Computed example of a mutant assay.
Amino acid sequence: MTAILLGGAGRTGSRIHDRLRRAGRPVSYASRRTGFDWDDPSTWTPAITSATALYVCYSPDLACPGVAEKMAALGRAALSAGVERLVLLSGRGEQGARASEDALRDAGVPTAVLRCSWFQQNFSEHFLAGPVRRGRLRLPAPDVREAFVDLDDVADAAVVALTGERPDDATYELSGPELLTFADAAAVLASAMGRPVTFEPATVTDFVADLALDGIPSDEAEPLAHLFTEILDGRNASITEGVERMLQRPPSTFAAYAQRAAAAGAWA
């Protein structure tokens, strides 16, 4: 099995890469740095020719206009290149991503789709790290519950899908083991850090201004605000069995993640 990770050394890709390398599995990245360009289909086949398994992580989002067409073309390229299995990172509850999932599968390569809840690591490795460090989560989020999922669980699940004895053509919804509001999450983070962290409902304008303190421009912050206002409507306020089905163990709790991140100095 030779795995190629489309999407570069992102938060999931880097974790998957490390796990496969430690297991002695051949693995490499494909990104603009290595000559793979999502906007230039002529670069796709040369980048994946040696792969028997592909991990697909598309940024910024599978629901963006034109992405389904790219996924359809990638599926055909993978089939022609002899790729035996695909693993696609998708979003739980994102109806706009379903067309991209279906399009990738249309070529006939077995495809494991990992639909994920909000990542726990968004609070330490992504756009919420700055607000947590400042002790105030100012978010355009309603008081709904979310089953935040650990990126390490997602990476473990992706490795299983990439290396299983048989290619898996199934969809897995991955979540954490508990439902938490952002106020609940703030309390857990405060306990792990040993200092106050609060949650405050905010307007999109206030949210964008807060992220600007961390150097995140408005053209990146506004789509993130869209995720809060559209996806966080209660549609994902349920716990799934995807992690346990794939890994034969319970998913990691938010408190365990927060304690690890604090000990590693994520918010120092």
Rank of each mutant, 00 (worst) to 15 (best):
residue 1 M to H: 11
residue 2 T to P: 01
residue 3 A to M: 01
residue 8 G to A: 09
residue 10 G to T: 07
residue 14 S to G: 14
residue 16 I to L: 13
residue 16 I to T: 08
residue 22 R to T: 00
residue 23 A to H: 03
residue 24 G to R: 01
residue 25 R to F: 01
residue 30 A to V: 00
residue 33 R to T: 07
residue 33 R to F: 04
residue 34 T to Y: 07
residue 36 F to P: 00
residue 39 D to P: 00
residue 44 W to V: 02
residue 46 P to W: 05
residue 46 P to T: 00
residue 48 I to D: 02
residue 48 I to E: 00
residue 50 S to L: 09
residue 51 A to Q: 02
residue 52 T to D: 10
residue 62 L to H: 12
residue 68 A to H: 08
residue 69 E to P: 00
residue 69 E to M: 10
residue 70 K to L: 12
residue 70 K to W: 10
residue 71 M to C: 10
residue 73 A to S: 08
residue 75 G to Y: 02
residue 76 R to K: 14
residue 76 R to I: 02
residue 78 A to W: 05
residue 81 A to K: 04
residue 81 A to P: 03
residue 82 G to A: 07
residue 87 V to N: 00
residue 90 S to L: 05
residue 96 G to V: 07
residue 97 A to N: 07
residue 99 A to K: 06
residue 106 D to G: 11
residue 109 V to S: 07
residue 110 P to D: 04
residue 118 W to F: 14
residue 119 F to V: 02
residue 121 Q to V: 01
residue 123 F to S: 04
residue 124 S to Q: 03
residue 124 S to V: 03
residue 127 F to W: 15
residue 127 F to E: 06
residue 128 L to K: 05
residue 131 P to N: 12
residue 133 R to D: 12
residue 133 R to F: 13
residue 136 R to W: 11
residue 136 R to L: 14
residue 139 L to I: 07
residue 142 P to D: 14
residue 145 R to H: 12
residue 146 E to H: 15
residue 148 F to N: 05
residue 150 D to N: 13
residue 151 L to V: 04
residue 154 V to G: 09
residue 158 A to G: 13
residue 160 V to N: 08
residue 162 L to W: 07
residue 168 D to L: 15
residue 170 A to G: 09
residue 171 T to A: 13
residue 175 S to H: 13
residue 178 E to T: 10
residue 182 F to I: 00
residue 183 A to K: 02
residue 185 A to C: 01
residue 185 A to H: 00
residue 185 A to G: 01
residue 191 S to A: 14
residue 211 L to W: 14
residue 213 L to A: 15
residue 215 G to A: 15
residue 216 I to A: 15
residue 229 T to L: 14
residue 232 L to D: 09
residue 234 G to H: 08
residue 234 G to V: 07
residue 239 I to W: 03
residue 239 I to K: 01
residue 240 T to V: 06
residue 243 V to S: 03
residue 247 L to M: 03
residue 248 Q to P: 00
residue 251 P to S: 07
residue 252 S to V: 12
residue 257 Y to N: 02
residue 258 A to T: 04
residue 259 Q to I: 09
residue 259 Q to L: 11
residue 261 A to P: 03
residue 265 G to N: 04
residue 268 A to I: 06
